[in-house]
Design a protein around this nucleic acid. Structure first.
Lengths: 220, 220
DNA sequence: ATTTGTAGTGAACAAATGATTACTGTTATG
DNA sequence: CATAACAGTAATCATTTGTTCACTACAAAT
């Protein structure tokens, strides 16, 4: 089976393709040649048709011959990132990355640290919060119900205050602790008697990543 | 704001509505009057139009006057239960009901006990598990990291063994506890020293609802 | 300089499509 | 029995819509 080879769209073609998508989302049916022409200031239906023919040839569209509004998208355009964004808003969820082990010297959200993603209800997080999930290692926070294997949901955008649970990078390790800042002296406080509070020294490689805003635990 | 009152569809109207949905999913654009007529053996476009007019009047459709294929669904029909099911499978999430306070004498999933819904990643739960979320009240389970205000995710389909965390109805109240059954003697064991284990007497109104398979906590 | 591709024009025409009119038959309801 | 609602018919007409033709201009590649 020979598949149509996708090739690069011209700027005009891309504009028209986006318009057709938006038109259909807003109206529930695709536009006509004349409606496209009206939008782009193209007075000739043949000019519009040439663009559509190119989009068909390049594999982005299907056109039903002689059918009014006979424009549809090729199969592999059905769920695009734009659609997913719209669906996330409409259905009320967010898909966020899950950070597992953090490689030394890498930003926490580096590609190599991402071991998957998780879908959460929008009531937990907003898209603008730049959230991610971090898989918990260790038992330093069990007194506040955060256990090894849990996912903590982290927002990079929330203000952090004393007693908040935070995620921080400390000497190339991601850690979850209770945050304390008194007179500029920062402590990361475990919530397990087995461990002592950590005072951040000036020489420590320390960075606050974000505030823990949720916990998800899966019991097996 | 006055909303159009939905009224009951006739059998024919419902068939036509379903056909329009399916046609649009398959083709990427809605059908014409003649295409609908062809499907249902209605030779007159006026006969078809009468049905569509009724669907508009009843709030299911919008029709753009004089536009070919000018049929679209009303806003609240854009995401139907069928679409959501397909999207859930495709995008990988489940929407489950959230039970708040349980009214005395009602099944736990009675309409009046449902105070919302929550979206969870499919890796947590499967559709076939009949899951729901229960908002936790009380502090009887803090030793296993289940706090007041948490959502516990409950599956009705999992086998329950000793030491599992379960949701049960006990004397008209929903309760989360650790389950123990020794020689037919059932105990519900809190995980907080403040409370004593509960032995289920034969006269107790007791019912196992399901097994806790996850915990979701939102930190405010 | 030539060729190819891109981006159009204006007009004409054919086909598709929606709207309307006047009508019939059946079923349910008061 | 009368009325209303439902479910159609056939024909006609107006409008919408897609296709085609012969053309122009410009940019990029050869």
């Amino acid at each position: 089976m020979i598949t149509v080879m996708k090739t690069q769209l011209t700027g005009r073609q891309e504009e028209i393709l986006i318009f057709i998508k938006q038109f259909r989302e807003e109206n529930g049916y695709p536009p006509t040649l004349r409606e496209i022409g009206k939008k782009f200031g193209i007075s000739s239906t043949f000019g519009v048709k040439r663009h559509l023919d190119a989009l068909v040839k390049k594999g982005y569209l299907n056109i039903e011959s002689n059918a009014s509004r006979g424009i549809s998208f090729s199969k592999d355009e059905n769920i695009t990132s734009t659609n997913i964004f719209n669906l996330e808003k409409e259905l009320g969820f967010q898909k966020i990355p899950v950070v597992g082990r953090v490689a030394a010297g890498t930003p926490i959200l580096a590609e190599e640290n991402i071991e998957g993603s998780v879908i959460l209800d929008s009531s937990f997080i907003k898209r603008s919060e730049d959230s991610f999930a971090l898989k918990v290692k260790g038992d330093s926070m069990i007194n506040v119900g955060i256990y090894e294997g849990d996912l903590v949901i982290v927002s990079s955008k929330r203000d952090i205050h004393n007693s908040d649970t935070v995620v921080a990078m400390l000497n190339d390790e991601a850690t979850v602790k209770t945050y304390e800042n008194k007179n500029g002296k920062i402590k990361l406080i475990p919530q397990n008697e087995k461990y002592k509070p950590i005072e951040i020294a000036g020489t420590d490689d320390f960075k606050l990543i974000g505030k823990v805003i949720g916990v998800v635990r899966w019991l097996n």
